[in-house]
């Protein structure tokens, strides 16, 4: 196969635009820098090798994320299908929102809902994502971090649309619970402040 310089330069340039986002997602997938760097490198090598099959006009970003996700799943034997029911606790709806009142106000300089969210550190958000089992973590990463549509996520992961939606839903609720637990560990939560017997 011969590739002229312009094609190569264009493709390299376009692919490199996505490197920082691919790297962040790779960090959340592999949970460490060296594996994440390897994963992005492997993704680019594979993308370049299959450049001949890349159709001009298709979404390069989704294509790169698809290659990276497949590479990750194959390389790390990530369990992709049929999560068992016990893999994530069933968390109640609006878990975090219902506990807004439990934030110890003395920990805050301001008030109301934004502050609970601002309490969470970057590391805590990353850790909550990284603790999700793969089959929930990847849809949440693709939707909340990368902004892909349900249809794009279904294509990237080769799972049905309904499965994308249910895994996103459960993954998000589970993250809320983890973040709440982290805040509790840091002494930011006073559960005595919550209304009693208000379970809906």
């Amino acid at each position: 196969m011969t590739v002229n310089m312009t094609t190569r330069e264009d493709f390299t340039h376009d692919a490199m635009q996505h490197a920082p986002q691919l790297f962040s997602t790779a960090m959340r997938m592999t949970r460490n820098r060296s594996d994440a760097e390897d994963l992005v490198q492997e993704t680019f090598i594979k993308a370049w090798r299959s450049f001949a099959t890349y159709q001009q006009g298709t979404n390069l970003r989704a294509w790169l994320f698809r290659i990276m996700t497949n590479t990750y799943i194959n390389k790390y034997n990530a369990q992709q299908r049929k999560p068992t029911e016990t893999e994530l606790d069933d968390v109640e709806e609006l878990f975090l929102y219902k506990r807004l009142g439990s934030v110890d106000q003395s920990q805050l300089s301001q008030s109301a809902e934004d502050q609970m969210l601002s309490l969470f550190t970057d590391d805590e958000v990353k850790k909550a994502l990284e603790e999700l089992p793969d089959q929930f973590r990847i849809p949440v990463l693709m939707s909340d971090v990368e902004g892909f549509s349900y249809k794009e996520i279904a294509e990237i992961l080769e799972i049905p649309l309904g499965t994308v939606m249910s895994r996103l839903h459960r993954g998000r609720k589970s993250m809320q619970k983890m973040l709440y637990e982290y805040a509790k560990e840091r002494g930011l939560i006073n559960e005595a402040l919550l209304p009693q017997g208000d379970d809906e």
């Binding site: 490199m16 962040s24 490198q41 969210l117 970057d122 909340d144 971090v145 902004g147």
Partner: peptide
């Protein structure tokens, strides 16, 4: 806000020095 927080806080990983150069060599 929660969705925004996840996006903003989980996407700011710094790249190691030389990583982008190594990536360019993939092509």
């Amino acid at each position: 806000e929660f969705k925004t927080i996840i996006r903003v806080k989980a996407q700011n990983d710094e790249l190691s020095e030389g990583f982008l150069d190594r990536l360019r060599e993939c092509f």
